[in-house]
Design a protein around this nucleic acid. Structure first.
Lengths: 233, 233
DNA sequence: GCACCTATTATGTACATGCTTATTACTTTT
DNA sequence: AAAAGTAATAAGCATGTACATAATAGGTGC
């Protein structure tokens, strides 16, 4: 009967994908609307909706009410990226995780950081510097500023034992954030910390974590040379 | 009536988020199951399911059949990352896009590339090298190998006019891929191409695009110093 | 105690239906 | 012809019901 084999949203999605990939439906084309597709595939409209919605989320389709669904002209593929959590990443790689706190002081941040923290003049913040080791080799260097006004409990935390990263994850609820990836030349200070040559190319993550309007923490993580971050399409 | 204000999946999601963020439900905790939540929120189970499913996709919840739903112990937040399409990225930044083909030859790839291409000995591939400019400044250098066996039409394409990147997007339907981000020191060759100092830290993307079992193309994109890639949580 | 089977259970999914909402296309007014 | 109002339409969403599937808990036999 109605069983064309498209009785699951995955099957529908695969068929739609196939039509996009074989250029039956070309980039920019308007595709039939949900009701027609559900009739063609012999399934409910909700099933077609589920399939198309996900493809739209992935950036392969553009959908607008009333206007219909069209194949994305620029399949600006969105990759999903797992933000590395240092300890987890090292341990999953079968290596031994180590951690050392280098410094943990409350002070006024330098100009460049102050801007990112959106902090007023004279305000003090907690500055935490630490190294993460994999099999006793320096793996990454963490340089973090914590807004004590937004996270007062951080003042009494002991970052000797547990990394600021983990403490924050477990103790403060956060909402939004921004991440910037870049390549940086190792400064002499960081080269010393990571035991690498000065000027080496370091993969660097800058991360800002916010709740509502206030910045909770900004952190720069510099990875030892050779680090790679993986993502899938 | 049943209107507690949780009569849409977004409202349910927000409430769940709130409970996670305020540590009413702590990392690792098992949360009530869908049926209970739907009763509490006065909505259908499908609505709760929609809300929870998305949170699970975002990495905030772990869901397993029969075992129930728990708050992710490590909210290893998955960031969504838009894979940059060079031209789009440059033009959206309000800059003028330029493109120059440096080389386009069919030849046998070096050992390191051969491995990534999963190609047999002696097989030839198309090697394309090009520069992308933003406001006449070198922005990124593209070094690509195309598997002619999998994409025979590429042989007759003219990469003087349109970049290999764009040609591929418009001409070959692709499926899966892997992406690796890293920081590399500029070799003398690449430094010359990007008009930067040798040894400068370059943000680098290695990308492999596949269909079914065959590798279609591998590409390395080296960005000029100072490039940043942004993502949101 | 161990291997195997079975019942239970929470999530996962499909469907029919009906309503909502954004956007377009068409019509009317100025 | 431009502006404003209106109807039609396609996606979006909510719901009740039903069944599928995976993983666990508990029991059985050895």
């Amino acid at each position: 009967m109605s069983h064309n084999g498209f009785n699951s949203w995955q099957a529908v999605q695969e068929e739609v994908l196939r039509r996009i990939q074989t250029h039956i439906w070309k980039p920019g084309d308007l595709i039939p609307h949900e009701a027609d597709l559900s009739k063609e595939f012999g399934c409910a409209r909700a099933t077609v909706n589920r399939a198309l919605r996900q493809l739209a989320e992935e950036g392969l389709l553009d959908r607008k009410r009333r206007a219909g669904t069209r194949v994305a002209a620029q399949p600006a593929r969105k990759a999903k990226l797992e933000i590395p959590i240092l300890r987890t990443e090292i341990e999953e790689g079968g290596m031994n995780y180590g951690y050392a706190l280098l410094s943990c002081k409350s002070k006024a941040p330098p100009m460049s950081v102050k801007q990112r923290l959106q902090s007023a003049a004279g305000e003090k913040h907690l500055h935490v510097v630490a190294i993460h080791y994999a099999n006793s080799q320096p793996f990454a260097c963490e340089d973090r500023w914590i807004n004590l006004k937004a996270v007062p409990r951080a003042e009494s935390a002991n970052f000797e034992e547990v990394s600021a990263n983990e403490w924050l994850v477990n103790n403060i609820p956060f909402e939004r954030g921004a991440i910037v990836f870049s390549a940086q030349s190792a400064s002499s200070r960081i080269a010393k910390r990571l035991e690498c040559d000065e000027g080496a190319a370091l993969f660097t993550i800058d991360r800002k974590t916010m709740r509502e309007q206030s910045v909770l923490t900004v952190v720069q993580i510099s990875f030892a040379p050779g680090y790679q971050m993986h993502a899938v399409l």
